[in-house]
Design a protein around this nucleic acid. Structure first.
Length: 375
RNA sequence: GGACGGGUGGGUGAGUGGCUAAAACCAGCAGACUGUAAAUCUGCCGCUCCUUGCGGGCUACGGAGGUUCGAAUCCUCCCCCGUCCA
């Protein structure tokens, strides 16, 4: 069986230790998935990602459809081969672009009409079209097209978006059933409903009826308070089948990863480590460090004295600050390397903490340390 | 020696009588970033005072004088830089 999800251990808190088997390898969960929108983690080559222990990458349907085109990637043997990443890949559907490109798109029940952010040309993405593209790309896990809306959203518009998302999920599932290959790819449904519990619960229940091999929670961490994100996440996971993987989309800050896992989440992805790195925002065990700050001009210490990453082993804050201010590409590379190591290391520690049954304590300790700034 | 052109805030460089503490860009300082329109974006960036306000005072467009209600902007002289002619 190409796809399999096993829950190896459930913490009293609700956190799960699992193993997700895909055609391109096994993913230990809870897992953090770095985002490589255009078939690249900005700043890091694949060999480095392997050294870092990246288990699975994200890529984006919308972006790859526009450039270089899904047919071209199919011709070249699929995304794994194209980008030389023989490990698991997940493609997002373009649902997030419905949200982030709000000025460049129009949504109807049929689908989304986008104005390309590259050249302004118009493109139509229906649920079926999204799946067609995702099949061509060939990722191990593919996502249904959903409508991600802004928060706060009133009950009526959240309800409409959730209903539309559910309808699209059905269409995606049906299209995949006739055109896809379940042995090769796994299609995940996405729960929407903004911050309204009743909508979230109903949407989750109906989505579960459609029987997807995995479920995602979308439309969170888009501006609402963290406590709300946690609350909604807990409510949704309580309705999702225990034997299937749960993916909280687009999160989060490092000090919050544990909170989601404590609420039954198995997979997460976020641009924060990679984007922040390019913007000079580094994560450390003592909190955030803005490398461009004048206070680091003569600082010979590594970014994070407790960090075991190759960047911290070798480079000083003073040098990294210089690279950043001098606009050297190396700044992005090294900063990204560090931040991704930091995230993946936290995930390793979280998995270990679940194994040792002290995740809750680990998470509160982590939160206290990270909510700070290094000396 | 002569003829032109030019000297503006840390830098480049607009501005040619009031709306100018002086555009824009860069540098500098600080902040933001959550399924990537992001190596991006935002704020500050002469000194000083306070009741922090589209607040007050001071200083400022090579120097010194002058014209004017008002000058970076006009006039006079001087200093410096560039190009050309002797």
């Amino acid at each position: 069986m190409a796809f399999q999800f096993e829950v190896l251990q459930i913490d009293p808190s609700g956190a799960r230790l699992g193993r997700l088997t895909t055609p391109h390898g096994v993913i230990e969960t809870p897992a953090f998935m770095p985002v490589g929108t255009a078939a690249a983690i900005k700043g890091l080559p694949q060999a480095t990602l392997e050294e870092l222990g990246v288990q699975i990458l994200l890529a984006n349907t919308y972006h790859l459809f526009l450039r270089p085109g899904h047919e071209l990637i199919r011709e070249l043997g699929g995304l794994h081969k194209f980008m030389s990443w023989p490990h698991p890949i997940l493609t997002d559907s373009g649902g997030y672009q419905v949200f982030s490109l709000s000025g460049l798109r129009q949504v109807t029940d049929d689908g989304v009409t986008f104005r390309s952010h590259l050249d302004g040309s118009e493109h139509f993405l229906s649920p079926e079209k999204a799946i067609e593209i995702e099949i061509a790309l060939g990722a191990d896990i593919i996502m249904v097209l959903d409508e991600c809306i802004e928060t706060p959203a009133d009950h009526e518009s959240a309800s409409k978006a959730a209903a539309r998302t559910l309808n699209w999920a059905r269409r995606c599932r049906d299209y995949f059933a006739t055109h896809g290959d379940a042995a090769r790819q796994s299609l995940f449904g996405i729960v929407q409903g903004a911050t309204h519990s009743d909508l979230r619960l109903a949407n989750a229940d109906q989505l579960v009826d459609l029987d997807f091999p995995g479920y995602a929670v979308g439309g969170l961490a888009v501006g609402e308070p963290h406590a709300v994100t946690c609350e909604i996440t807990a409510e949704v996971t309580s309705r999702l089948p225990a034997e299937k993987p749960r993916y909280l989309m687009g999160v989060g800050r490092p000090e919050h990863l544990g909170d989601y896992i404590l609420r039954g989440i198995d997979m997460m992805d976020c641009v924060l480590p990679t984007r922040s790195a390019r913007h000079g925002y580094l994560f450390t065990h003592q909190g955030r460090l803005l490398i461009k700050n004048a206070r680091y001009a003569k600082d010979p210490r590594p970014i994070d004295e407790q960090c075991k990453c190759p960047v911290c082993a070798r480079y000083s804050r003073a040098y990294l600050r210089h690279l950043f201010l001098a606009n050297e590409i190396l700044a992005s590379i090294l900063n990204t390397h560090h931040n991704l190591y930091f995230y993946l290391d936290i995930m390793r520690q979280i998995r270990e903490a679940i194994r040792l049954r002290h995740l809750a304590r680990f998470c509160s300790d982590l939160q206290a340390r990270l909510d700070n700034e290094p000396s």
